[in-house]
Amino acid sequence: MTAPFGRRRVPVTAAGAIGAHTIVTVVDEDGPRPEPGQFYMLAAAERWGGGEDERPFLPRAFSHMRVHADNRLDFVLHEVGPGTRRLAELESGDEVWLLGPLGHGFRPARSGRRPILVGGGVGIAPITALKDELGATALVLLGFRDAAHAAVAERVPGARLATDDGSAGHQGLVTDLLCAELGCDPRAEVFACGPHGMLEAVRVLCAELGVPAQLAMEAGMACGYGACFGCVVPTRDGYVRLCLEGPVLDAAEVLSCSAPAGVAA
């Protein structure tokens, strides 16, 4: 499936905070239905490039959290820099530039394996979209810093939670929950999205237990369609552009999920 050639100016129909996160909903009337794990390049139509310090300048990459029947798309944001700050200011009636859906999403689980979905922070986005597709059978494990950040998990009924400070769910890491689950029954396939450290822990754990995993990764990205060569990650085939070959990669192909130094906000 290919993406429409060109960015589309689309309206924001809802925007609001859930705890420490913001959910922005846009209507993409002319766009194709995205697959869980695909992503879009997003930029506010106004005040993008003209603000303090002339940033944000480049669009930002986001996987959709949920696609509704009427082509509404939900995106979840956490303010970490000028781009996410500007997007979090959007209000209903504002407009955004949208390019996508881009990249390759999650593939179906290998036969005979139960899917376990693991999300951390804003990594909840493609996990929610995948859960919507898989339905009740899929177990969802979500990790957050604290209860305020975990509030967004209300969008995924039935998810089991872990928080660093124990203010919601299990006190500790989401990979503790994953470790326990795989200990009970390793005939699973893991679908994960989250911070670099979490993904690396999932990758190493799954490799040790021989459990297949699909990782939705993140990298600083200027364009989203293979032009800038900025978003490379190390794989067995050398560096690959995450926007073209990912953002979902088979864990067995990935050499490391650790951030080289960090990811631009």
């Binding site: 310090d53 002339e54 940033r55 944000p56 300048f57 480049l58 990298a219 600083g220 990205m221 200027a222 800038c228 060569f229 900025g230 978003c231 490379v232 990650v233 560096y239 080289p260 130094a261 960090g262 990811v263 631009a264």
Partner: peptide, 8 residues
């Protein structure tokens, strides 16, 4: 990587 840096 990292290969990109956004600036003013």
């Amino acid at each position: 990587p990292p290969r990109l840096w956004e600036l003013a």
